[in-house]
Amino acid sequence: MVKQRNMWAIIFLFFPLAIYTVFVIMPLLSSFYYSFTDWNGFNPNFSWVGFDNYLKITTDPTFLNAIKNTSIWMAAAIIVPSGFGLMIALILQRKIWGANFFKSLFYLPICLSLAVIGQVWIWIYHPDLGLLNLTLNFLHLSFLTDAWLSDPNTALFAVIVAWCWQQIGLAMVIFLSGLTSIPQELIEAAEIDGANYWQSLWRVIIPLLSPATVVVIALAIINSLKSFDVVYIMTKGGPFHSSDTLAMMMYNESFQKYYIGYGSAVSVVLFLIAMIVIAFYFRQVRELEHLYD
């Protein structure tokens, strides 16, 4: 009986595990291996260079700049979509007329591709025809207008705003599901004790939302590490690397310059940062679980 069960387990697991191992795990390990070589992708004779690529990274201004930009991105990703997402979720969680209709509209950007979103925001930022500059001119604020995407000072922020626009809906979905799991009695108890809305928001709702908040923040960090499509479409990391992210730099080094070894090292760094974030995430989740026991 048990034997037969195990036989079926092997039959069922064979294809999933084979495909996962060949196309995810083995490439992952190969990337680690390549990151210790000086391979250029074509020459079959490449050599083991130890930690050279990693040492080079620490002094490469392009990499340090990409790290800086990715950190800015991450900070924005943690604050902006979760802030707006929470605000809208708190409004829509009330029984108001048309709440479901509003929810649908706010969710909508999640199902759009970042390729489409990037395209739309290029039009918003267009120096002559873009909505942003037109609005600023209309408000007699012409001195604020800018060629947003070709100005190195604003390109990164312009791209981040477009990206955050999509992420708001995602944060909102998670906060809404978190809000519905808060026991209503606790809020009512706070009211009976004389708390006003803001007090019960800060003292009751937000603390009880922390499991959702942890998910939103972990997601924001992981997604910001992956940010590539929207950068590629809007600026390709330019001008002068001013909107480069780690993912974008990895693409440039590996698939434009064919520095396979070096590009692999960048991807390993990206991977390790993601793993550190996830480790924190699970520790946090476990602590929160204790909290509710």
Binding site: L13, P16, L17, Y20, F23, V24, M26, P27, L28, S30, S31, Y34, G41, I222, L225, K226, F228, L246, A247, M250, Y251, S254, F255, I260, G263, S264, V266, S267, V268, L270, F271, A274, M275, I278
Partner: peptide, 22 residues
């Protein structure tokens, strides 16, 4: 084995691109 599979949820896709391209 389950954890091994689920870990893939958190991998940034960049880590597998170069070897798969090859």
């Amino acid at each position: 084995v389950f954890i091994f599979v689920i870990a893939g949820l958190f991998f940034p896709p960049q880590i597998i691109l170069i070897p798969l391209f090859q």
